[in-house]
């Protein structure tokens, strides 16, 4: 049979691959803007959720404009600070990729910070964090009160932690206990400790780990600690 020659097979395979590659690259380029927009909206929504805003996001008709409206309304400032606690000019906090910053030396790092102002005038500081779970990256936002010490709210999310165990870091039962905890002990930075087997009653620095999700929980603890510690000089500057 003619079509079974090696030449035919090679030619067939090559043409097929080229055609498929062309179609896929076209689709990728054509859909990129819509996908990037979705990611941007998700990032904004995450920031808003850490201060308990944008609760209706999944119910409104036009989610994108709702999220952007809320974001512009409440997030008054986007700051970038350095490791000494000074505010940097000329960098947009929203454009910063945490992964790239964490790869840099501490001296060169740009640390993003969002300032949220409620209608009653109270101010919250939102810090995005990024770390490693068991299977892949975990990330979130931590909102602090004006005292730069008490946690007002948090959001966490993950790429692919174990369903039902580590994946539960994005569930309310895990995030809720962070509220009202303190990251400083006097002048000393202690971060938040995630206790395996449950945090002691009345511990203002500790929350419960997830049973069966110890590595994710510990990864989250390390994430909060390393990310927040970069901001400590800035906290001290503000408090003064």
């Amino acid at each position: 049979m003619k079509k079974q020659t090696n030449l035919y097979i090679f030619a067939y395979a090559s043409i097929m691959v080229i055609v498929v590659a062309a179609i896929l690259s076209f689709a990728s380029i054509a859909l990129k803007p819509a996908q990037m927009k979705n990611l941007e909206i998700e990032k904004k929504l995450d920031i808003l959720r850490s201060v308990n805003l944008a609760a209706d996001a999944s119910n409104v008709k036009d989610k994108n404009s709702y999220v952007e409206g809320e974001f512009d309304k409440f997030i008054k400032q986007r700051l970038v600070v350095d490791y000494k606690g000074n505010v940097k000019e000329g960098v947009d906090a929203f454009e910063i990729t945490l992964k790239e910053e964490q790869a840099k030396d501490i001296e060169d790092r740009n640390l993003p910070l969002y300032v949220c102002q409620f209608e009653d005038g109270s101010v919250k500081y939102i810090i995005p964090v990024l770390g490693k779970g068991l299977w892949g990256p975990i990330w979130g936002n931590i909102a602090l009160n004006e005292d730069m010490n008490t946690i007002y709210g948090v959001t966490f999310d993950h790429k692919g932690e174990t369903p039902g165990l580590g994946a539960d870091i994005n569930k309310p039962f895990f995030m809720e206990p962070f509220k009202g905890k303190q990251i400083m002990n006097g002048d000393k930075f202690v971060s938040i400790i995630v206790h395996k087997g449950g945090a002691p009653e009345g511990d203002i620095h500790g929350v419960d780990a997830i049973s069966g999700g110890t590595i994710t929980s510990k990864g989250l603890e390390a994430m909060v600690k390393t990310c927040l510690s970069d901001y400590v000089p800035y906290f001290n500057n503000v408090r003064k």
Binding site: K3, Q4, Y8, I9, Y12, A13, M16, V17, V20, I23, L24, A27, S28, L31, A34, Q35, N38
Partner: peptide, 26 residues
Amino acid sequence: PTRIRIIVQLVIIASLVILVDQLLKA
């Protein structure tokens, strides 16, 4: 070609799935 028909099938399924995935993401 019969000898590479499984590969051809896989390539076609895989490209369609990637297309669907990209559309869903967008």
